[in-house]
Each structure stands twice: as structure tokens, then as C-alpha cells.
Simulated assay, not measured.
Amino acid sequence: MNDQPEVSGAVRILPADVRLTVRNGETIVDAVRRAGYRTRYCCRRGGCRACKADLVEGQVRYPVPIAESVLSAEERAAGKCLPCRAQPAGEVVIRLSEKDTLTRVFGTFRPAS
């Protein structure tokens, strides 16, 4: 039996150029936190828009629909995403907003064996 979580994709975060794997059912922000980094976010439900980033490459899905007032069709068409709710569909590249930075706050989390 394989105890390793199934990987659903990966995210490369610009401008830091950090690449992280994303597990099934995990959002981009969840993967960032699991790896010991932080980015700008507040509510983790998509309502505050603090984490809004550019989706440079790839596609994301939102298992729970995002309100048009939070992320409009025009913003999606322009390549905006909400990493706190977005799950990558394969490999994606996002660019953090100018107000945001990727900060390493902990060593990489490794579950006890």
C-alpha cells in the first residue's frame, strides 16, 4: 500500500520561481503553506480577493463556485485567479501581485514516518 498522497499537479510561483507539488483536493495556498511558505491571503474562502494572482500558464479549477462579484468573467479571461480556492489542473504558473511576496517561514514539513 502506498501511503504517499496523490499529486494532482504542480505550481510554479513567480517572481520567486519556486515550484511546488499540489496534492489532490489541495488549493494552491494549501500547497504553499504545507511547503513552509506564506503569501498574501486573509479569508482563504475567496471573498476578500487578497490573494488574487495572474495565471500565467495552465488551468485551474474551482470545486466550489466563485461569485462573479469576487472574480468576474472578465478577470478570469484576463488570466486572474484566486490561489486560496484554485486547484491546478496539471502544471500551472502563477505570478503574485506586486503587493505580494513568497516568504519562507518554516522548514519544509515532512510527516513523521
Rank of each mutant, 00 (worst) to 15 (best):
V11A: 00
D100A: 13
C42G: 06
G47H: 12
A86H: 07
A10C: 04
M1G: 15
T101P: 00
Y41S: 13
A10E: 09
S72A: 14
C84F: 10
R44P: 03
C84R: 02
P88A: 09
V22M: 04
A67T: 00
F109K: 04
E75W: 10
G58H: 10
V22S: 05
V105K: 06
G46L: 06
G36M: 14
P5V: 14
P15G: 02
E26D: 07
P88H: 05
A35G: 10
Y62F: 14
C43A: 10
T103K: 12
C51I: 04
P5A: 12
R76L: 13
C48A: 11
P83N: 13
G58C: 02
C43K: 12
P111D: 07
T39K: 06
R34W: 13
E6G: 02
R61K: 09
T39V: 14
R33G: 03
V56E: 00
D17W: 07
D100E: 12
R61N: 12
E74K: 04
L96P: 02
E74Y: 02
E68G: 04
Y41W: 15
V64R: 09
D54S: 08
A50M: 06
A50K: 00
D100R: 05
G58Y: 14
Y37I: 09
R12C: 13
T39D: 00
T108V: 11
C51S: 05
A86G: 11
I28K: 05
R19I: 08
E75N: 00
R19M: 08
E6C: 03
L96T: 01
Y41H: 15
R33Y: 15
L55Y: 09
N2K: 03
R49K: 13
V56Q: 02
P88L: 05
G25Y: 08
A53E: 03
L55T: 08
V70G: 01
R45G: 14
P65M: 11
A86N: 03
A35N: 12
C81K: 01
S72V: 13
L20N: 05
V92Y: 13
G46D: 07
Q59E: 15
G46T: 06
C43R: 10
V22A: 03
I13A: 02
E68S: 11
E57F: 04
V32A: 03
R49T: 10
E75T: 01
Y62R: 03
I28G: 02
G107C: 09
V70H: 15
L82P: 00
T101D: 11
L82C: 07
L71Y: 12
T103C: 08
G107Y: 11
V22W: 11
N2F: 13
K52T: 12
Y41R: 02
S8V: 05
E75M: 04
V29I: 12
V64M: 07
V56Y: 04
E57T: 01
Y62P: 03
A50C: 14
A31D: 07
R104H: 08
L20K: 01
E98D: 13
